[in-house]
Lab assay of single mutants.
Amino acid sequence: SSQSQGISSSSTSTMPNSSQSSHSSSGTLSSLETVSTQELYSIPEDQEPEDQEPEEPTPAPWARLWALQDGFANLECVNDNYWFGRDKSCEYCFDEPLLKRTDKYRTYSKKHFRIFREVGPKNSYIAYIEDHSGNGTFVNTELVGKGKRRPLNNNSEIALSLSRNKVFVFFDLTVDDQSVYPKALRDEYIMSKTLGSGACGEVKLAFERKTCKKVAIKIISKRKFAIGSAREADPALNVETEIEILKKLNHPCIIKIKNFFDAEDYYIVLELMEGGELFDKVVGNKRLKEATCKLYFYQMLLAVQYLHENGIIHRDLKPENVLLSSQEEDCLIKITDFGHSKILGETSLMRTLCGTPTYLAPEVLVSVGTAGYNRAVDCWSLGVILFICLSGYPPFSEHRTQVSLKDQITSGKYNFIPEVWAEVSEKALDLVKKLLVVDPKARFTTEEALRHPWLQDEDMKRKFQDLLSEENESTALPQVLAQPSTSRKRPREGEAEGAETTKRPAVCAAVL
């Protein structure tokens, strides 16, 4: 046999249950609850290399294929790409003598399909299967379609040439079993990697079954959420508030809700932002270029202005709740996480202390139980975000031990490091100062900020419009641009040419 590394010779191994799959997660993409704000000051410096380099560890398999027929071997997927077919160049070659004697062998292509993985959001991997055969590759009886790919989820059954000719079961060793999710959700989405997690739940990458488009699904544990919100009269209202707010909003710089499922837990389906959180971008770069800050901040102002015009105060604006559309420097941003939002009543007064301390406005800290506050709290938070983006460190921090965090904020005395700000323009610093004003009545509004000289930049605004146009074009394009080929190089076993392929839609398939 010419099988590559990772293939075992026996096809009769006992199949494990899916609970053996491991679970991976990374930083929070968007969480309903406010958790302790991640610290920006503690960015690790590059460490000196050791005298002796450690040995390379043996790579762990990321997936496993269990053979369902004699003549096929099990495969431990270690590499990122595997070709399957009769050709000797394939990493998994159909060359077992037992297999060659079967009637089905002649229906398999020289290069029938490939399984591979690509880097997705949060640097996690996504597994795909890609059909290159004349007679078809099927996943859970659905045709992939020649020249098309679809994501592979845990426990997928792979069939060759005929939908009933099941050859492998695919085990993704990095994700959960699909069966743990409600059927209504599974009918519409293929669940994938964990993108982030918080005290009350997690955010998962998923794929729409009909279109193969990526989405983010925010899962909120009702049990954990009820415990964490025990002081509230009705904890469920917080989730329902977020859903109702998101459904009503329609702005290019605000995250869109696509679906909602109320089962044992809450499942909020949101558009996916491939670039992750602004927080991670700031930490990764230490600070952002001023031109990049301007492009992002302009969009934040437009989003918050839209919220305020619609009578909504976000109340928890922070870099973790600003998501980026891509890994590119120039990209769209979207505001997310409306769990603490407040729809303005007639009095415009709110007395609930919520939000993240580092970003809270002075009037929030001094008015607990005594007075109210209004939309100006969001403008203060925007000032803190702009400060961080321009400088790479927070204006107020618990680690300045000589003054408490509350006193720093209520006095408006931010930590100004001259040598850092020497590289920032006077106009940018002036806008920061106009937003970090203790008196909410004297603080800049979103309208005033948008009129500030720093943002009178036609090149930046043109760039934003171009990015918007690109997004609109990409969302308007159909996901499947061509029909699967019906040509046949070899006959199917026991049926006429093209008899099955043309009847089945290529579900969740995307043209390369």
Results as ranks from 00 to 15, higher is better:
I335Q: 01
H314M: 00
L272S: 14
R400M: 08
K342G: 01
E497T: 12
C389Y: 03
K463V: 09
L249S: 03
F279I: 07
C389F: 14
L270C: 04
L360M: 06
L360I: 09
P484W: 01
H308W: 15
I333C: 00
T502Q: 05
L390V: 07
L386S: 03
H251W: 11
V403W: 03
L249H: 11
K342E: 04
F297T: 12
L365F: 14
G494Q: 14
E346M: 14
K294Q: 15
L249A: 09
L344Y: 15
V269S: 06
I257S: 04
N250E: 07
Q305H: 13
I409F: 06
I409L: 08
L382D: 02
E309S: 07
H308L: 02
I255V: 06
P478A: 03
E328K: 05
F261E: 02
V480P: 14
L382R: 01
L272C: 12
Y373P: 01
L344T: 05
Q456H: 12
E244T: 14
K463P: 09
S348G: 15
K286W: 07
L436W: 04
W454P: 03
P357C: 12
S425P: 10
S404P: 03
V283K: 13
L301M: 01
R490G: 07
L382F: 04
K256S: 04
E423R: 02
D466W: 12
L323H: 03
A509I: 05
L481M: 14
L344A: 05
K489G: 14
V282I: 11
R462L: 13
H251I: 01
R315Q: 03
Q465V: 01
E274H: 09
E470P: 06
L436N: 12
G284R: 13
C253L: 05
G494A: 08
F444W: 12
Y359I: 05
E497G: 11
L405P: 04
Y414M: 02
F260V: 14
I343H: 15
L301R: 14
S469D: 09
P319N: 03
V403M: 11
N321C: 00
V420C: 01
L431M: 11
V368T: 02
I245P: 08
Y298V: 13
K434F: 00
E328A: 12
L386Q: 06
G339L: 02
C253Y: 04
P395L: 06
Y296M: 15
Y306V: 08
N415P: 15
A303Q: 01
E426H: 14
N259G: 05
A376N: 15
A428F: 00
V364G: 06
P395K: 01
L431S: 03
E363D: 06
A449T: 12
I255T: 05
S367M: 15
N310F: 05
T336A: 04
F338N: 00
A361T: 02
P491I: 14
N472E: 08
K281H: 09
V283T: 10
K463W: 04
N374F: 06
V322G: 02
Q479P: 14
P395G: 00
V283F: 03
H308A: 13
L332S: 15
I257T: 08
S341I: 05
S325V: 08
F260C: 15
T336Y: 00
K256N: 09
P319S: 10
T352V: 04
G412V: 06
T370F: 12
L405Q: 01
Q479V: 05
K318H: 00
P252H: 09
Y266A: 12
T358P: 06
A371G: 08
L307K: 00
L353I: 10
F464L: 03
G383T: 03
A482Y: 05
S326F: 13
G494W: 13
T486V: 13
M273T: 10
S469C: 15
I243F: 10
G275H: 08
P362R: 00
F261P: 05
K318V: 02
K489P: 11
T292R: 13
C354I: 10
V480L: 05
L272A: 11
A476K: 12
N415G: 07
E473V: 01
F260K: 04
E274Q: 09
D265I: 15
S381A: 09
A291N: 13
E423H: 15
L302Q: 10
A509E: 10
L272P: 11
V403R: 14
